[in-house]
């Protein structure tokens, strides 16, 4: 039976969905960038407060905003081995308390000893913050105050000194914690999706033998079904840099309809002392075979001396990430 085979590079089987998944990760990066354009610095000051005397900042304007919130960031500057409990207070124009939030901050250091080793450690947790949104559709002026509730050293002794704070107030601040979570999620799904393309399709043949030639038969074919033939070779240390894989396809009556040799480049795995342990090589061929029928796939690796194992995998209905060269085999 006369058979024609022609190679053609085609993007007909490209799967667009992994690119959409990658696009969502890009969307999140854009969301990070654009969040910078919404925020506005209202205030950035250094103040001091004592246990007796809270410090009050100049009032700030709170506007109802569709995007972001009013963010108050406070950072206590205390010496080593001190603890301070401070409260961020918000008041309205009538001095009525609108909200309060407490932060327990500390800065400590010391030495450690473990199994004959020693060193010093220093840790702190000084930053506090509050995000506020306006409820009604009205503007209002807010008074922000910082109150020191307790200031002690590590022995629990009261320290009667003012605590310096760095306070910054910004409006239109977007909560990037969600964006980080989203970025992790979309990047992992995009990676999975890229991986899923090469693992897609239906496996119709998966055969491994400890020899250099392997063959199997399966019912495949059709002009809309892309076949992917994967050959994996494991060989010993005497392998040349390139092996030759001879691929043959036979039709239902055993007649050869396709044969071709491919060069397979080998990767060598070395052990800790730099000696070659084994060599591996992989070949991937894309085919369209017509008409749907029973076909035999045979692979022979030469030289066969060093070959330990040959694996033949045929998948049907695969998709690709980019345009690939496809061998179209059909009756004349």
């Amino acid at each position: 039976m006369p058979v024609i085979h022609q190679a053609q590079t085609t993007s007909r089987f490209v799967d667009p969905w992994p690119y959409l998944a990658c696009g969502t990760a890009v969307l999140l990066i854009l969301a990070f960038v654009s969040s910078l354009f919404f925020q506005k610095n209202l205030k950035s000051v250094k103040v001091q407060a004592t246990e007796e005397e809270p410090v009050e900042l100049e009032p700030v304007q709170l506007n109802p905003q569709p995007v972001g919130a009013l963010r108050i960031d406070v950072k206590a500057s205390i010496p080593d081995n001190h603890w301070v409990t401070y409260e961020i207070q918000l008041r309205d124009q009538q001095d009525k308390i609108l909200t309060t939030a407490i932060k327990q901050s500390w800065r400590e250091s010391g030495t450690w000893q473990e199994e004959g080793e020693s060193g010093t450690w220093q840790e702190d947790d000084l930053q506090g913050g509050l995000d506020i949104r306006a409820a009604e559709q009205k503007q209002e002026r807010l008074k922000i105050a910082i109150a020191v509730l307790e200031y002690t050293d590590t022995a629990g002794q009261d320290v009667n000194q003012p605590v310096p704070f760095e306070v910054s107030v910004r409006s239109g601040v977007v909560d990037t914690r969600y964006l980080w979570a989203g970025l992790v999620g979309t990047v992992s799904l995009a990676a999975l999706s890229l991986k899923a393309v090469s693992a897609g399709g239906t496996k119709v043949i998966a055969k491994t033998i400890g020899d250099s030639d392997v063959g199997a038969r399966a019912t495949v074919g059709g002009c809309h079904k892309l076949l992917q033939v994967t050959v994996r070779v494991t060989a010993d240390k005497n392998t040349p840099h390139h092996l030759t894989a001879y691929l043959r396809i036979t039709n239902g009556s055993g007649e050869q309809i396709f044969s071709r040799s491919f060069l397979v480049a080998c990767n060598f795995r070395k052990d800790a002392e730099g000696r070659i342990e084994k060599a591996t090589g992989q070949l991937q061929v894309f085919l369209i075979v017509e008409p749907p029928s029973s076909y035999g796939f045979h692979v022979e690796i030469t030289p066969d001396g060093p070959v330990d194992e040959t694996q033949l995998i045929v998948q049907e209905g695969v998709r690709t990430l980019q345009a690939v060269e496809v061998m179209h085999i059909h009756p004349a």
Partner: peptide, 14 residues
């Protein structure tokens, strides 16, 4: 996540 971060659903509403 973009909707949650831009609408600041984690903020306290006065």
């Amino acid at each position: 996540t973009i909707a949650a971060s831009y609408s600041q659903r984690s903020a306290l509403t006065l």
